[in-house]
Structures are given as structure tokens and as C-alpha cells.
């Protein structure tokens, strides 16, 4: 095995081009488990820890995205996302705070979560909910490719990166409304989600974003639920009035979220339980975010 230790991003891209089978390692919280247990023997490890840009984030405006955007370096650890980006990316910050344990959150990163592309990765539902214009910035010596988050996940633990590409950053629009993340597990820490759900209100364009975790071969969006609730909010003028959504529409939203999943029975839970739990989480998180939204309307008035 080789250990490649690029000191700069350009060196990292050159190394990946030269050794397409080299396995990138950032926080190592997925990679090292596989190495320690002999589940994987890559020809080379490509260490990203020395590339400073990957642990920085910046905010700004970027082509193809509306409004202010956070360009989150691939290797910014979860602990810093929660500490530094709770206001701009509340859904992702909440999800980050549920990952593993403090030690895992000091190392694990969104780039690593995307690289592993596990259906149980906690960043994914929050990224999906943040909007269809969330972009994964993939780079190679050939150039930059911006992959829309919906096109990133292509199968169980499979993503759409090419062999010579690395994730430089994720571009995520700054929240324009309340966001929530909810996750089911046997305890409050160190839990791979039985299932997870994220929701984000986008009052600016009148949409609602969703993301489902651990209940399908890939992380996925509940598209019908999004359309239904956006229609409901628009037709009834609720964005303006801030009135209650009401139990019928909230329940329907939960049913559509559950229907969007295709869960399986496994050691962590049954398919039926996952569907049930998703409906409950969807109802609750929608209510929490709507309460926060109406509160902000009232305090602005």
C-alpha cells in the first residue's frame, strides 16, 4: 500500500489522476474502520488532511444559485459545522450534532459522508432538504463539475464521482426559513439512524424541502410530499397569514413522506416501523418549523 500525502489541492488532484484507485482519507472515521477490520485493502491511501482549503468555509454568491451560499470545504469537521454554521445551515448543523460522538464529530466530515454515500449518512437528508440547488463541487485535473445533490446518489453506497475526481466543497444556499432534522435510534449518541428525516421551509420561493435517510437504497427526497405541502401553503395563503397548517394537511404530508420511502427489514428495524416513524417525524418536524416560521412572522410584524 502507498500513502500519498499531497500538501496542496493541486497536488491532491494530480495524485488522484495518477492513482485513480487510491482511496481518499479525510477524517478516517469510515475508512479506518474498513482498514482495521481488513474489509478493504486499497492500493494507496490519499491523505487530505494537509490540504488547508478543505477545512475552510466561505459565504458568497455563486453562479446557478440564488442568494447567499455557503461553500463548505469537504473536510470541515461536524463539530465545527454545529459551532460555526448553526445560523446559516440550521438543518445540517442539527444533523451534524447527532453524528456518532464528540470524538467522531471532531474528525468526520460532510465530504466523507458523501464519499461513503451510505443511505444512513446523516448529512444527506439535510442537504436534500436545503434545496434542489445544493451542489457538490467535484474537481479533477480536467476541471470542476457541479453535481446537483439529487443526482449525486446513484445506488447503495454509490455516488456519481468519476475515478479521478475529489470533492472540493459543497455549495449550500443559506437558510431562508426554519429547518429541522430528526433521527430515530436506540440511544441519544453513537447511533446509526434507524431512519431519519429533514425538512426545510423556503418562504422565498414558496417551496418545502425534504430528505429521507436510512429508508431506501439511497438518501432521497419525498417529492410528492413537497409538492402537496407547497400547494397547500400557497392555495390557503398560509405563507402570508401564518395560520395553522392543521391536522389534515399535516397528516397527509406525513403519509406522503412515508410513501416516498422504500425501506427494508434489517437489524436496526423493520420496514413497517420505518414507514411509521417517518410519518411521525415528518408531522412533527413540519409542525416545529411552521411554528418557528409563524413566530418569525409575528415578531417581524
Amino acid at each position: 500500500m502507498e500513502f500519498l500525502r499531497p500538501a496542496t489541492w493541486d497536488e491532491a488532484l494530480a495524485a488522484k489522476a495518477e492513482h485513480p484507485s487510491a482511496l481518499p482519507i479525510a477524517g478516517g472515521t469510515d475508512v479506518m474502520v474498513e482498514l482495521n477490520f481488513d474489509r478493504r485493502r486499497p492500493s494507496a491511501l490519499l491523505d487530505l488532511n494537509r490540504v488547508g482549503e478543505l477545512t475552510k468555509w466561505e459565504s458568497g454568491r455563486f453562479e446557478g444559485q440564488e442568494g447567499e451560499v455557503i461553500r463548505l470545504g469537504a473536510a470541515v469537521p461536524y463539530a465545527r459545522i454545529t459551532r460555526e454554521l448553526s445560523a446559516q445551515l440550521p438543518g445540517l448543523a442539527l444533523a451534524a450534532d447527532t453524528v456518532g460522538s464528540p470524538q467522531i464529530r471532531n474528525r468526520g466530515s460532510v465530504g466523507g459522508n458523501l464519499g461513503a454515500a451510505s443511505p444512513a449518512g446523516d448529512a444527506h437528508p439535510a442537504l436534500l432538504a436545503a434545496g434542489r440547488d445544493v451542489l457538490v463541487e467535484a474537481q479533477s485535473v480536467r476541471g470542476t463539475r457541479l453535481i446537483p445533490i439529487d443526482a449525486f446518489y446513484v445506488g447503495v453506497k454509490r455516488h456519481s464521482l468519476e475515478a479521478d475526481e475529489l470533492i472540493r466543497a459543497v455549495r449550500i444556499p443559506v437558510a431562508d426559513g426554519p429547518q429541522q432534522f430528526s433521527k430515530i435510534g436506540t440511544r441519544n449518541a453513537m447511533v446509526i439512524a434507524v431512519c431519519a428525516f429533514a425538512v426545510a421551509l423556503h418562504p422565498k420561493n414558496g417551496t418545502v424541502g425534504t430528505g429521507i435517510g436510512s429508508a431506501a437504497p439511497t438518501p432521497r427526497r419525498a417529492a410528492e410530499a413537497e409538492e402537496f405541502i407547497a400547494g397547500e401553503l400557497a392555495e390557503r395563503g398560509l405563507w402570508q397569514s401564518g395560520a395553522l397548517i392543521g391536522p389534515a394537511a399535516t397528516r397527509r404530508f406525513g403519509e406522503l413522506v412515508a410513501a416516498a420511502a422504500s425501506p427494508i427489514d434489517d437489524v436496526r428495524g423493520t420496514a413497517a416501523y420505518r414507514r411509521h416513524a417517518l410519518a411521525v417525524m415528518a408531522r412533527r418536524t413540519l409542525t416545529w418549523t411552521w411554528d418557528a416560521y409563524t413566530h418569525s412572522l409575528r415578531s417581524a410584524a
Binding site: 482519507i25 478516517g28 475508512v31 479506518m32 491523505d47 464528540p102 470524538q103 471532531n106 474528525r107
Partner: peptide, 8 residues
């Protein structure tokens, strides 16, 4: 603080 078993 990190888990040293997960650092290469």
C-alpha cells in the same frame, strides 16, 4: 480529542 484508532 479524537479516536486514535481512526487516525491513519
Amino acid at each position: 480529542p479524537v479516536c486514535s484508532c481512526l487516525v491513519a
